[in-house]
Design a protein around this nucleic acid. Sequence first.
DNA 1: TAGCTTATGATACACTGTGTATCACAAAAA
DNA 2: TTTTTGTGATACACAGTGTATCATAAGCTA
Lengths: 187, 187
Amino acid sequence: MTTDPRVQRTQDRLRQALADLVLQRGYEPITIRELAAAAGVGYATFFRHYPTKDALLLDLLQHSIQELARLLPPGLNADPVEEGRVIFEHAAQHEQFYRILLHSEGTQALLAQIQAVAVAEVLGRFGGQRAPAIPLEILAHHLVASIIALIDWWLQRGQPYPPPRMGQIYAEMIMRPFLALAGGERR
Amino acid sequence: MTTDPRVQRTQDRLRQALADLVLQRGYEPITIRELAAAAGVGYATFFRHYPTKDALLLDLLQHSIQELARLLPPGLNADPVEEGRVIFEHAAQHEQFYRILLHSEGTQALLAQIQAVAVAEVLGRFGGQRAPAIPLEILAHHLVASIIALIDWWLQRGQPYPPPRMGQIYAEMIMRPFLALAGGERR
DNA sequence: TAGCTTATGATACACTGTGTATCACAAAAA
DNA sequence: TTTTTGTGATACACAGTGTATCATAAGCTA
């Protein structure tokens, strides 16, 4: 196990430096030399921890996801409007993470993984009931993709509506049609 | 204007070589040297026509778009099911184009442009009627993003349903909720 | 504290790919 | 034919990646 505090320190510095640089100038133009310098770390040291820049990006996002998972409110299943409001409050509070995840090249694999996890969650929650007219797999993908697209739209335009309003829109435009087609919740 | 047949020949070869290579091994790992060799063109000649690999990719896609625009059936506004079927027939016939556009890095700008054009089209078609409960801008973005996501899902999984079935799904899952919220067509 | 282990910093280096410059040659245009 | 212009081939400068090496410092253990 890697409990050496020097390792932790180096990796923390690299993750933090990457987060800073990505928000300043985007992901692609960053060089590893520049990244190591910003982290206050030797150039060769980078490769002792990560084989590529993409590997560091994935590690950064996975750490962020674990932090977010700890903060995520556990029971979102009550009111769709309230559920949507919580989602968009969360997106507003962690805008940096979402922007990096949604718009840095090199995150498509991770985003696809996250999406797959969310789809599986939806499938599990709506799985065992009367067969819907549209395959549930398609409905689940449509639901997840729609939520991601709406968050992306909202953040890219500087949050033009407050989270409670976005919660209403989410409930009416996304969840209500989905529930009508999937047939309401179960278990 | 560039009517020199040598220029046309060189650029055609480069576009064709890029299309072939992208489908074989993806976009990013292709080098310009390799591309020029595959096109049967000198290495330096590449830079006489395109400043970067991305520029060639955009040129290739824009040429493809122009071809597709010529083939696009003019009146899609009749039956949503039929409209959806036509869309997915089109996606099946031009799968290569869609896959490159949707999954090559370096196409996000172009994809965003196409999406913006489609959104504007929707806004124009549903613009001047009773104000919907949800801002039409959001509805239009949701509609366009949903269609793109559904096409992407379908192609990535090897077209698991035939186009007529996808047309039904499109009508029921995407268009019907949209029309209910946007308030039906006009003009 | 002393001694061992391991991560780090610094540097040099080979390697790959980009983009430019040059020049002789071939193809198109007048 | 003469002129113009695109092309092929080559050499080159440059930037960025990934590896190797070694002295030093930080952390662990007795």
